[in-house]
Amino acid sequence: MLLEGKNLSFKYPKGDLIFKDVNISIKSGEIVGLIGRSGCGKSTLAKVLAGYERPVEGQVLLDGKEIPHSGYNPIQLIYQHPEKSINPRWRMKNVLEESGSMDHRILEAMGIERDWLSRYSRELSGGELQRFSVARALNDRTRFIIADEISTMLDAITQAQIWNVILDYGRKRNLGLLVITHNLHLAQRICTRIINFERMDRNGE
């Protein structure tokens, strides 16, 4: 499968243009690193690709087709702040059930302990929560994963654990990955290709 962003431009209502004419494409099985300065628009691009924001110009296409607005989105975004992507009034069990990701092998590989499932998000640390947001996205219906700084706030061991699970799962299912990070070591370690957002060729990659 092929995920493409074509001539994407974005701005918030009343705001300045955040980026203009961005072209990006990711094939299944590819792990693309996206690096660039803080605040240059990488996160916004992630949101546009995952359908959280509509571009003011351009299109996001999956195998040449537009992505429907309802139903399960095969492009799943994992966010830097797990505490914001989990309802604080829910137990973690419900969080996993919302996407139907209850594969015990994944939970185990992720180091999710059984008794965490009955807890609320405020009773878990950031690293523990992020494992849930990742587990939630590792799902039969997911074809592409966009990881926006998902391990920036985590210690090295948790980072290595989460990434090893994602890479392993991605390999088995032939997922395409877009990895947004400030950590060059990480990008060099896991990516098949690295793009610098600011030096991106704006007219076809």
Partner: peptide, 12 residues
Amino acid sequence: EFYIKLSKKLGR
């Protein structure tokens, strides 16, 4: 909230 938007992307 982000988790509401995410719920939508999970097909809810």
